[in-house]
């Protein structure tokens, strides 16, 4: 387990020694900031709902961009071979990389707290939905990271990894909107499978165990699948 921390630290640092971290974080902040403040003054309400509503869409393409290199690049350059012949287990590698993205995600979200601070100066801010929103964002980010990691383990090509990861995250985000023509009861099932539905629940400020279990199980299943793929490739 100690090695999974070593791998996590190395991966996390590698984001910041390359331009990836700076580009991804600035684009994330520009997009979320733009869409949030563009309508914020029109609604004239001291809340962050707009910011959180757009988050699933933003995450579904930002996170696969962060995770796409994790396995693909290593397989492609061959550093995979060096890593796996050191005394590490599959689990060390998968968890190490997953938590590196998780840490990155938190760093990416931290500057957006300034939006909350800013809004709180303008009016009475209801902290429930804000705290709920951040819990939801972290959980959803984690499950998208697991999906991205899985996509990256499938191929040595980063672009393919990105597209697979993004498509998968998009489907989870938009599934209920894509299947609007289905009868209500069937739609409810698909809605339950979608990430957006659970995220919007939490971001209302109601942290329900069903939503927590959903995100945790998506992460778990995807990490397990990644582990299987890696084993299979040996």
């Amino acid at each position: 387990m100690k090695n999974s921390l070593n791998i996590c630290v190395r991966e996390f640092k590698s984001y910041f020694t390359s331009p990836i971290a700076y580009i991804v974080i600035s684009i994330f902040l520009i997009i979320t900031g733009w869409f949030f403040f563009a309508t914020f003054f029109l609604y004239n309400q001291a809340e962050l709902r707009n910011f959180f509503e757009l988050l699933p869409i933003t995450f579904s393409f930002m996170i696969p961009a962060i995770t796409m290199k994790l396995f693909s690049e290593e397989i492609n350059t061959g550093s995979y071979e060096l890593l796996y012949t050191m005394p590490v287990t599959n689990l060390d590698v998968v968890l190490g990389k997953f938590f590196a993205v998780f840490a990155f995600l938190i760093v990416m979200l931290l500057p957006t707290i300034s939006y909350a601070v800013f809004v709180s100066f303008l009016g009475e801010l209801d902290y429930g939905p804000v705290i709920g929103g951040y819990i939801g964002a972290v959980l959803m980010g984690a499950s998208f990271a697991a999906i991205g990691l899985f996509a990256s383990s499938l191929t040595r090509n980063q672009i393919i990894a990105f597209i697979i990861g993004m498509t998968f995250c998009r489907i989870l985000t938009l599934i209920d909107k894509m299947l609007f023509f289905l009868p209500g009861k069937v739609l409810n099932i698909f809605q339950y499978l979608g990430a957006d539905f659970h995220f919007q629940n939490i971001s209302k400020g109601i942290v329900d165990s069903r939503d927590l279990i959903y995100f945790i199980s998506v992460s778990f299943v995807m990490l397990y699948a990644t582990d299987l793929i890696i084993n299979e490739n040996k």
Binding site: N6, S14, T17, S79, T85
Partner: peptide, 29 residues
């Protein structure tokens, strides 16, 4: 793996890391 040190063909080391950082990482692992 603990007993064996391995150098694959063409030494595919992480290209963006400094040599010292890399050896430090290997020492930790």
């Amino acid at each position: 793996k603990k007993m064996v040190g391995y150098l694959p063909e063409s030494a595919p080391i992480y290209p963006d890391m400094l040599v010292y950082d890399y050896l430090n990482f290997v020492a930790d692992v």
